[in-house]
Computed example of a mutant assay.
Amino acid sequence: MPEVHVTIEWPDQQRDTIYSPSTVLLQYLKPGDSFSIRDFEERISKALQVASQRVYERYGFECTSAMGELARLKAQIAAIDDKTSCIKVLS
């Protein structure tokens, strides 16, 4: 399966790279998009769950890397004080 890496910018202007085992991530996050914290969390959760499911359908097991990435991102989201701020998709 083709891996995808997407670069985002957190509200504090720190850049981060998101890993997905599937190009499905590109259906949820497109360069130039900006999302509220809540919308980003919903999108990234759905995207990485679908990506993991695609791995399961192809290989018979879920992608632990995608689920680990989701857990990491959710922890970072939980640490954001200003929930009204936005996350930008850079590339």
Results as ranks from 00 to 15, higher is better:
Cys86Met: 15
Leu26Tyr: 00
Ser20Ile: 05
Gly60Tyr: 06
Ser34Val: 10
Gln49Glu: 15
Ala51His: 05
Lys88Tyr: 00
Phe40Asn: 07
Thr84Met: 13
Thr7Gln: 04
Arg58Asn: 08
Glu42Cys: 07
Glu9Cys: 10
Asp16Glu: 14
Gln49Val: 01
Asp39Arg: 14
Asp82Gly: 09
Leu48Phe: 05
Lys30Leu: 13
Phe61Cys: 13
Gly68Cys: 03
Asp81Val: 10
Val6Ser: 02
Gln76Lys: 13
Tyr59Arg: 11
Ser34Lys: 13
Thr7Asp: 05
Arg43Gly: 04
Arg38Gln: 10
Ser52Asp: 07
Ser22Ala: 14
Asp39Ser: 11
Pro11Asp: 00
Ser85Phe: 05
Val4Ile: 10
Gln13Arg: 15
Trp10Asp: 07
Lys83Tyr: 03
Lys74Val: 08
Tyr19Pro: 01
Gln53Asp: 07
Glu69Met: 09
Arg38Pro: 04
Phe40Cys: 05
Ile37Lys: 15
Glu62Pro: 02
Ser36Gly: 11
Tyr59Gly: 08
Lys30Arg: 15
Ala78Phe: 05
Met67Glu: 06
Thr7Lys: 14
Tyr59Pro: 04
Cys86Tyr: 07
Ser65Asp: 11
Val6Lys: 03
Ser91Ala: 12
Asp82Tyr: 12
Arg58Val: 08
Glu41Gly: 02
Arg38Lys: 15
Thr23Gln: 15
Phe35Trp: 09
Ala75Thr: 10
Phe40Met: 07
Cys86Glu: 10
Ser45Trp: 05
Gln76His: 05
Val55Trp: 05
Asp39Asn: 12
Cys86Gly: 08
Ser20Trp: 03
Leu70Ala: 07
Lys83His: 09
Gly60Leu: 06
Leu29Gln: 03
Glu57Met: 15
Gly60Thr: 15
Tyr28Asp: 00
Lys74Asn: 12
Ile87Lys: 12
Arg54Thr: 06
Ile87Thr: 01
Ala71His: 08
Glu41His: 04
Leu73Pro: 00
Asp39Val: 14
Cys86Asn: 11
Ala75Val: 03
Lys30Asp: 06
Thr84Val: 10
Thr7Met: 02
Pro2Asp: 11
Phe35Gly: 02
Gln53Val: 05
Ala47Leu: 08
Trp10Cys: 02
Gln27Gly: 14
Pro11Asn: 03
Leu48Thr: 09
Glu57Tyr: 13
Arg43Glu: 02
Asp12Glu: 11
Ser52Glu: 04
Ala78Tyr: 05
Glu3Ser: 15
Lys83Gln: 08
Glu42Pro: 02
Met67Pro: 00
Gln14Met: 11
Gln53Met: 09
Arg72Leu: 00
Ser52Ile: 05
Leu29Trp: 00
